[in-house]
Design a protein around this nucleic acid. Structure first.
Lengths: 249, 249
DNA sequence: TAAATAGTGTCTCTTAGACAATATTAT
DNA sequence: ATAATATTGTCTAAGAGACACTATTTA
């Protein structure tokens, strides 16, 4: 079989001497690489993000997205999952790579390239978010009322929120923010909190049910006033299938 | 104004000692960081990608996506643009970050994390792709007939193709593969080559024209057989507007 | 029985896809 | 005239959005 391709030659010879393949790794100065994990959660009627208060220079006293340096023996995903576990004690939740931020001046200490991830965790998984007075701590900030952030973390958060809203429309990421069983009103409420707009109840329910990704538990929610609502559970067996097409086709 | 957030304390104290903010950069071993640029082009009736043949260990003699180490003073985008310029002498074309690949074993030399970008260049910009016999060279391979690739570059290429096809549907990236003026048949042909399927001529033209992103040049293409086709030009002033909504809503 | 929340159906408009005949040019 | 390519419109089906009333429970 004859391969069909075009070769290029000539001027290329001039520039290849500093290309990657002839580079001796370890000869030049290297950047540091971190992972930062944007962790979303629905708590107390708001979409919130987990932030940590910095104790040291630079940006001492300012809030930052949790993150840490990538270890030599772990993958990026492992590093991100480790950070998530350390900060929330949660694992096996939705997490995906968001974007890599590498502006040379984003960290005043040295060149730091950060691979940002974003995760969503159900509120009942981050069990005890007791309010405290310890100022050197970790806190769930509402996305609509963020403090001043360290580094370029505001930009990262904005991008993460854009991605979350976007994925809400064509994936099942929204279900990951809710407990195992939930009512359709709770699901719609979660969508409304994240999108920041109200949705029509009938249209919302029609679309969700048409996607055939929910199972009725047969049980009903019995707390609060008003008519008890049916409880649904997310059909895990439907994940792969649903991710291929749009949730709202 | 009272800020509304929850503080978390307690077990966190145990794990913060190796978090990023207390890390002394330079204390630990650092990975190398490269950018790899997947460069697509429509040449000779095929969607092609630019590959370089490796001259040294590892993967000596195998083909690889062009790339190189990120310099300490340049941003990731600058590094990617520099690689693109070095390999193709082209600049100011569509390019965006694709994904960051960081498996610890992806490079046998050392830990190398690569930030992959993908670019599309019009065929008339990479002017002279003269066929040659120099085996240590650069070549445009058709995406449907790729050689064995070095590192995890096959995975990167597959992902880039998926992204390109996806973006074809809701952005104007397809126009970037064509010369400044083009006919609707040529545009449709480009779409068909990339998507690997035939499209209905009437529906395609209706959608493209409905998007109102093309200007008629008033000229007609006069070469080849058959009725001469109208020549169109992409409306650059429409970019921002069109990217917000779907090209094919 | 009043208050609160859950649950349900229709109409219209837009869009997507299937489908074939005519128009213009060169040879 | 013939060959080759360009250009154009209609019908139908599915989905999206707007819209209001009834059902079930607790206090």
């Amino acid at each position: 079989m004859t391969r069909d391709f075009f070769l290029i030659k000539g001027w290329k010879e001039r520039v290849t001497e500093n290309s990657a393949e002839q580079y001796d790794p370890g000869k030049f100065e290297r950047p540091s690489v971190t992972v930062d994990v944007v962790i979303f959660c629905l708590i107390d009627e708001k979409l919130r993000v987990l932030l940590v208060k910095r104790k040291h220079w630079p940006f001492q006293g300012m809030w930052a997205i949790p993150g840490g340096f990538v270890r030599m023996e772990e993958s990026l995903e492992e590093a991100a999952a480790r950070e998530l576990l350390e900060e929330t004690r949660v694992e096996n939740v939705f997490m995906e790579q968001l974007y890599t931020f590498g502006d040379p001046s984003r960290d005043p200490r040295t060149r730091v390239i950060t691979v940002a991830y974003f995760a969503v965790v159900p509120a009942d998984a981050v069990s005890h978010h007791e309010a405290g007075t310890d100022a050197e701590a970790t806190a769930w900030f509402p996305m609509d009322d963020l403090p001043e952030l360290a580094f370029d973390h505001r930009e990262i958060l904005d991008y993460a929120l854009t991605r979350l809203r976007y994925k809400l429309e064509y994936t099942t990421v929204g279900f990951q923010l809710l407990p195992d069983v939930f009512t359709l009103s709770e699901l719609q409420h979660a969508y409304e909190l994240i999108l920041g707009e109200e949705l029509d109840k009938r249209n919302f329910r029609r679309k969700i049910l048409a996607a055939e990704i929910l199972d009725e538990t047969g049980r009903k929610k019995r707390e609060g006033e008003g008519r008890p609502a049916r409880l649904y559970r997310y059909r895990n067996d439907a994940v792969a299938e649903v991710k291929a097409r749009r949730l709202f086709p």
